[in-house]
Structures are given as C-alpha cells and as structure tokens.
Design a protein around this nucleic acid. Structure first.
Length: 592
RNA sequence: GGGGUGGUAGUUAAGUUGGUUAUAACGCCGGCCUGUCACGCCGGAGGCCGCGGGUUCGAGUCCCGUCCACCCCGCCA
C-alpha cells in the first residue's frame, strides 16, 4: 500500500465486483470485534463498505485491526466476496464485503466528541466547534454535494443563455442606504475604510454600461445585521443582469435556471411560467409580501362589515383609520380555547394587542367572547364575508393595517405548519410583482426606496414620484417559493435625470448623491442601456432543496447567531502593532 | 436593543418540597467472544452541576448578575 492509491471508493463495490483485489481507504465508521474475526465499516463521502478480518486469511492485519478505533483513517487491501445471506440491505454495498489481507493505519484519532451519525444528538454549540466532524455526517455531505450541483447547473444554464461570469470586488465603498456595512480599515490610507459589498448591485449596472450584456456571478454578500434561522452575515447570491429587457425577459431566464436545478437535483419538473401575483393582492390576501400559496386560510378585510357593530374595539379601530382583518380557520380542525390562546401568543410579537375569535355553533349562532356584540344582521354579514359554516372558527385582528397583516399573515403560516396543511415535497413558486417604489419611514418622516434606489418606477408612474410617491409602483419583482423570498430584482433606472429625481424623492440631495454614487451617475452620461436583473439567495434555495430549517445546514462553515465562528474563535482582537499600522485606537473595547 | 427556551461526565439527558456518596444511556479503558452490522457479555475510570455573587446549618435545586447556544420581534435599501 505504499502508493497510497485507492482502487475504489467506499460506496462503489457491488456483487459484480466479487473476486476482485481492491484497495480501499477511509474512516473507520465502526469496529466490531467478535474475538475471532473483526468487522470494520469503512466510510468515505461515497458510502460505507464492510471489511472483514478473517483469521484464516487476514494474517498480521487481524492484530492491527483489533487496535483500530472509530474515526481512525486506514487503508486496506483485500478481495471482494459475497456476503450471501448475511447481506445488509440498508447500505448500497451491502451485498459484498472485502476480506482484508493488509491493513495500514494512516492516522489515529482521538475519541470524537459526538458520534458521526445522521441523527444529530450533539448540541449546535458542540457541532459548530467541531465543524469538521459535523461535516463528516452523511446528511451534511449530501447537502453540500447538492450545493455543488446547484452551482454547476447555474453556470451551465446561464452560459447556454449567453451570460458572462465576471467577478467584482469585495473591497468597495460604504453606501448610505440599506443594511449596515462590514468595514475594513485601509493601511495605506489611514483613517479610511473599505466596505464589503451588500451585493454587487452597482458593479453589475456598470457592467451593463460597459456593454457586458448578460452578466452573472455566484458571489458572497455581506450584511452586518442580526441573524435568523435563514440569515447569515455572509451569504451567497446568484447575481445576474441583462440589457434591453423587460421584467418578463429576466423572469423567463430565472425560471429556466430554477427549472433546470429542480430537474437535475430533485428530478422534479417545474411547470413554467410561474404564477404571478401583485404585491397589493399578496398583502391583502396573505398579509405578507412572500405568500405561501400551498394552502388557503386567506385574510379578509372586514372593516366595512364591522364598522357599525356593537364591539367598541372594532368600531374604534376602523374609525381611527385601522382595519379589522380575519381568517377563517376552516379545514384546520377543531380549535379549543387553549389552542386559541396559543394563537394569540403567535400574533403578539407582531404588535397585535389581541386575537378575537368566533365559532359557528350547530344552530348557526356565533359563539365566543365577542359574539354578544353582533346583531343578527351583523352575524349574517360576517358569516357571508368569511364563508363561515357550522363548526368553523374565525380569528380577528383589529389594528393598523401593517400590524393586522403581519399578525394574521404569520399566523396562517404558523397554523399551516402546526396543523400539517401542506403536503410534503410540494414546491409552489410565485412571482410577486408591482412592488411599491417607496416605503414611508415613520421615524424619519420621509420616503425611502422600498427595493433599492436604482429601481425604475413603472413608466406610467414616473411623473408621480415627487407629487404622490405612495402610489408609485416599481418595475420590481420577487421570486417566492413556499412562502420564502428566494430572490428579487428589478428593471433599473438608466437615465441620469430619472436617477436624480429618485434621489430627490428619498431625500438624498445632489451633493450627497454625487459623493456616494457619483461614479454611477457619471457612467449614465456615457451611454447607459436600459437594463434589469435579479439576484437569487442561494442559501435559502438550498435550505428548501435540502429540506432543512437551518441555514447552517447548507453553509460549510457558518457563524452563530452572535456572528462568531466557534471553531476559529473569530472575531478576535488584533495586536497593538496591527492597530498602530492601521492608525486605529480602540475606545471602550469590550473585553472578550 | 427586546422577548423566549436551554446550559449537569467526552456526548445526550434525569435529578422530587433545598438534605448523606449527583444518576442513566452512549462513548472511553480493561477482560471474554469466529458472522457482526446500534454485535454481545463482565468489570472499571470519568463531574468547576456554564461563570460570579447572595440567601441558608446546608444550594445542581431558591434569588441577583453575567457568559454561551438556539428561536422570535426590531433590524435585514
């Protein structure tokens, strides 16, 4: 075994290989010493093969095999033979075993802190500290094999569509809008800082100006915001941009990419084109801008129905400009008082002050704490508006529109999950289109860009940008899968005058705009083609493909919720010499 | 920044109204065992009960603070 060469991988041998002399190398998954003979399950990322050390043929290797422990790295030579009726049907190589004649210990291993098995027993903390061991688990290896394939399909498909892969810089300039930037000090220019890109947005637009029509990149983006189960401080996007296109052109390309991915990774044929829903419809019917349309439980606005009823909370809310929205929970089973109290807890984090409910009794009358406030006429109207039948339960939130939508929109997702209303392996893609161009920032008392400030308004709305910003729709679109936003994009502004008007609308003056984005505005003076694009969130898509709830299962070396790396113990202090070189002095440095 | 859940042996967990020597499983170490595949059987070692205070005759258990992990809200153009 001097050459360190394998003849096969550990998932490869079949009964057609019986009789062959083979060399396998890998990790000792388990060792079973029966006294006379010893079995070793040898593992690599390809699979597991049973090695048997038979005293009749193993010779000196038998004694060595007795010493071997879990996760040692070994090489073995031997002959493939049938396991006959001892075959193991649970592994791909189960029909055969290798009768070893030689064993070489390539690396010993300390006892591992947790077993290398698919069923995760160890805590997240332990797993992250020993990430290189966690990554040995078959489940994670499968995820990263799929992620590799994802990248291959993206590159192949976009290449076939005439896209060029171009790399853009990581050390760039901090921008005022958007998320918090990660910042890198400059040694050469003391007191000045680079920022890491939140996305390659401006570069891809400059590439369009440069004539590199149809650009793409699979690239890292950095945002210094707090984490969630589906959010990491550095994450990966498939970023793409095209010139001389409509939103539909971009959407077609993206549908083609996603269809190829689902076909090749999951053998699922996606029906195209995907469904489309307007932002307004999505908010009205589902309460959120990323609707999960795999199940019903749609929201209904009952403001006009209840504005004259006897329930003061509803009446006052509507009179003060709020809304009363409701969801008929029919089709999700019986709801006890205790269940409904739990739902109230679901809704509270979104600012809802309470969750009213009504049930329809056998005799068609309403039951519930608020039932007495409704006249027979009101009751009839409610029943009709919510399509309430005997046995149904409806829940109500009365609040500002934003709160009512968020509360009930997330409640319906919660109910669907809890009551298992969604069939497994269902993929419902939908385009959400006609987003508003602006958001009103209630704290700053001004409008800000809903998507980003380079998003083009719908042409017919462009003249209302300053006079009636709230009504302006953007040529912006998100792609949503099963209620999760997996990508978004827009047609961009390519006209310098329009771009200036956009900055004006969001309160960025000429001077500031030129200071921050001068290079883009300059570029627009030298022949900018109409262009648009989109970015896909690779990590979130991989979560859905791999069927996991944690983004850490699809990122090889992820960070904790507090943005640390438990394996590297990063971030870490740097020494004084480095600080001096950067001309940085720490103030009130929190002791690590 | 706020809310919630958790932290006890290498790992995962149990630990009663505060009360003698803190349990179990897996793993680890030693012994036996020739068809196992979660091998089996016998024996053994292994503890800063996250950390720091406090209450108490006495704290894994009660109180205060703090650190870490996870989930959620805010935040994420």
């Amino acid at each position: 075994m001097n050459e360190n060469k394998r003849s096969h991988r550990c998932g490869e041998l079949r009964d057609s290989d019986i009789g062959k002399d083979v060399t396998l190398m890998g990790w000792v998954h388990t060792q079973r010493n029966l006294g006379g003979c010893i079995f070793i399950d040898l593992r690599d990322r390809d699979g597991v093969t049973q090695i048997v050390f038979d005293p009749d043929i193993a010779g000196a290797a038998l004694g060595l095999a007795a010493e071997v422990r879990g996760e040692w790295v070994v090489g073995i030579k031997g002959k493939v033979r049938s396991r006959g009726k001892n075959a193991n049907t649970r592994i791909s190589t189960g029909a055969i075993e290798v009768a070893a004649t030689e064993l070489e210990i390539l690396a010993r291993a300390k006892p591992v802190p947790f077993p290398i098995e698919n069923e995760v027993n160890a805590s997240e903390e332990t797993r992250l500290k020993y990430r290189f061991l966690d990554l040995r688990r078959e489940k994670l290896q499968k995820n990263f094999i799929l992620r590799h394939k994802f990248n291959q399909v993206v590159r192949r498909t976009l290449d076939a569509n005439g896209f060029l892969e171009v790399e853009t810089p990581f050390l760039i300039k901090s921008t005022p809008e958007g998320a918090r930037d990660y910042v890198v000090p400059s040694r050469v220019h003391q007191g000045k800082f680079f920022a890491l890109p939140q996305s390659p947005q401006l570069f891809k637009q400059l590439l369009m100006v440069a004539g590199y029509d149809r650009y793409f990149q699979i690239t890292r983006c950095f945002r210094d915001e707090d984490l969630r189960a589906e959010r990491q401080p550095e994450f990966t996007q498939v970023d793409l941009e095209m010139s001389f296109v409509s939103p539909e052109d971009v959407q077609n390309v993206v549908e083609g990419v996603l269809a190829n991915i689902w076909k090749e990774l999951l053998d699922v044929t996606l029906p195209t084109p995907f469904e489309r829903i307007s932002y307004d419809d999505s908010m009205n019917r589902f309460g959120v801008d990323a609707p999960d349309m795999r199940f019903g439980l749609e929201l209904k606005d009952l403001s006009s129905v209840v504005k004259g009823c006897g329930f003061k909370v509803f009446v006052d809310t509507v009179a003060n400009g709020g809304v009363v929205k409701a969801v008929n929970l029919s089709g999700s089973g019986e709801w006890s008082r205790k269940d409904l109290e739990e739902l109230e807890e679901v809704v509270k984090p979104y600012g809802a002050k309470g969750l009213a409910w009504l049930k329809i009794k056998e005799d068609q009358t309403l039951q519930g704490p608020i039932a007495k406030f409704f006249t027979p006429d009101d009751q009839a109207n409610l029943k009709q508006a919510l399509s309430l039948k005997v046995g149904d339960t409806a829940v109500f939130v009365a609040d500002r529109l934003k709160v009512a939508n968020a509360a009930l929109g997330n409640l319906r997702k919660h109910v669907a999950k809890k009551r298992a209303l969604v069939a497994k392996d269902q993929f419902r893609f939908v385009w959400v289109v006609d987003f508003p161009l602006f958001d009103y920032d209630e704290e700053a008392k001004r409008y800000s860009a809903a998507h980003h400030p380079f998003t083009s308004p719908k042409p017919e709305h462009a003249d209302k940008m300053l006079s009636d910003p709230a009504s302006v729709k953007a040529q912006a679109y998100d792609i949503v899968l099963n209620g999760i936003e997996i990508g978004g994009g827009s047609i961009r502004i390519h006209d310098q005058a329009l771009q200036s008007r956009m900055f004006e609308a969001i309160g960025i003056g000429d001077v500031e705009a030129h200071a921050k984005f001068g290079y883009l505005l300059d570029a627009f003076q030298f022949g900018a083609p109409p262009h648009g694009g989109l970015a896909l969130g690779v990590d979130r898509i991989m979560m859905l493909i791999c069927g996991t709830d944690s983004i850490r299962d699809v990122i090889a070396f992820p960070k904790t919720q507090k943005q640390t790396d438990l394996m590297l113990e990063a971030p870490a202090a740097i020494d004084d010499a480095q600080l001096t070189e950067l001309a940085i002095k720490l103030i009130e440095a929190k002791k690590a």
